[in-house]
Design a protein around this nucleic acid. Structure first.
Lengths: 151, 151
DNA sequence: CATATTTATATCGTTCACGATGCAAAAATA
DNA sequence: TATTTTTGCATCGTGAACGATATAAATATG
């Protein structure tokens, strides 16, 4: 079977790609009413944990480059979720801070994961099995993230 | 811990999203020289398994909608990898068939997975561990794919 | 102190994803 | 057969991702 490896069903990456797409899609019914997208939700998660971070730190946290994060933040600023102010010690930096609206969303987002979990539990039977993915995904991510994002 | 669930590190979806991004990114050094992107590679995988399929079947196989697949195929047609001809029995259909160029790429793509595996093995230590992801990802995908893509 | 390098962010172009919508052909139903 | 519904594909708009490149400020080096 010379081309056995070239079968779609033999490819882990396709599964990751699909699982990620579908999982992000599963957030849509919950995020759409809040007026945010999944990547925007990720930014909010980071800022809810700690407000007032430079673009760079947010990017590092999300393992994204600034050329992805900057426009994302600009859109979020335009929709009133956050503000970007010039850094004081380092004027190159842009400090991102939540607005009231951005802060308030936390309350509404609090139950998303519960709802989602219940939803998936119903469809998959078990949540524990999903939890087993975590350590391996973390190893994979660590192994693949060796491209040094500057900062 | 009222907001414990809203911590980035507690979220499986973020891991899937990141792992998928990084894994697709790992294909880049191999696909870029061939002049194709990862989604285009997926289309080729499908067509290499079976040539001359309607758009719909390809979309179903990749679990994507036609509004994603159609432009993808159009770009691939423009770069000479495939052709889209009107179906004979059903004139609504567009039958997608590989060109010589598209067929020939299979030979060059044959070793990508080996190289990639070696690469990841070096960074992660084990490939078996990655294989353990597969059944769980499949269950997750099946659970989440209940939105009926027409066809 | 002057120059070179690095760093933080931004801009641009291309390619996905995907919701919404449109349209013509096929199939189902009246 | 006439009409409705479904199906297969396409188009449009928006928001990511990401490679390449630019710019100014900070830092390192001469």
């Amino acid at each position: 079977m010379e081309y056995e490896q070239l079968k779609l069903n033999n490819q882990l990456c396709f599964r990751l790609y699909t699982a990620a797409r579908l999982t992000v899609g599963a957030y849509h019914p919950y995020l759409n009413p809040l007026g945010i997208t999944y990547p925007q939700y990720l930014v909010l998660l980071v800022l809810w944990e700690q407000d007032k971070q430079p673009v760079c730190d947010i990017a590092k946290r999300l393992m994204l480059d600034t050329n992805t994060v900057t426009p994302l933040l600009q859109r979020m600023e335009k929709s009133g979720l956050l503000q970007r102010t010039k850094g004081k010690t380092d004027t190159r930096q842009r400090i991102v801070s939540l607005t009231e609206k951005g802060t308030a969303l936390r309350e509404q987002a609090k139950h998303i994961l519960e709802c989602l979990s219940a939803n998936i539990l119903e469809k998959m039977g078990s949540l524990e099995e999903l939890a087993t993915l975590v350590p391996t995904l973390d190893k994979l991510i660590e192994g693949l993230s060796e491209r040094h994002i500057g900062c």
